[in-house]
Amino acid sequence: MTALAAGTRHPVTITLNGQPRTGHAHPRTLLSDFLRHELGAHSTRVGCEHGVCGACTVRIDGVAQRACLTLAVQVDGRRVDTVEGLAREGRMTALQDAFHRHHALQCGFCTAGILMSLADWLVRVPKPTEAELRDMLSGHLCRCTGYAAIVRAVMDVTGQTTESVHV
């Protein structure tokens, strides 16, 4: 049985975007804080800390989850992927590029979480309908875009079309 005392910082080792990284965390340290302030992986944004807004969504062993509803000590020994790991050698993925072309982000604060959800979900649902996509996106709050361009970008990158916005 793993037993970690409240008052002690314990070593936590994760595979962050393919690289082994070790930091220290109290049992109560949230994964979102651990990534950002202990490992310096700032791309995971914190928007509500109660699991509704989705900005902090990361992949744990490939599965999209809220980092703010996860303790750092719970991911010891596991794989964590954040948006920093998406682009390879400076080349953005097709999804990132579609977000750029379609203006699917403005302030960008929610974007990392949305991209990480999509990175998991599009593996499971490679050709989503717009309704399915919107259902999945409802786990993220975006205050800038009105979601239209996000939907357009995803439908584009999955080789589908969406309703035109311009008449």
């Binding site: 950002r36 992986a41 700032h42 791309s43 944004r45 914190v46 954040t82 948006v83 920093e84 998406l86 682009a87 953005m92 990132q96 977000f99 750029h100 072309r101 203006h103 982000l105 302030c107 960008g108 604060f109 974007t111 990392a112 991209l115």
Partner: peptide
């Protein structure tokens, strides 16, 4: 014209106040 801001935001390198 697509935005010059996007690359930093999409790849996670953007720096907000808390970063």
């Amino acid at each position: 014209v697509p935005r010059v801001e996007d690359a930093a935001l999409l790849t996670g390198s953007a720096r907000y106040a808390d970063d």
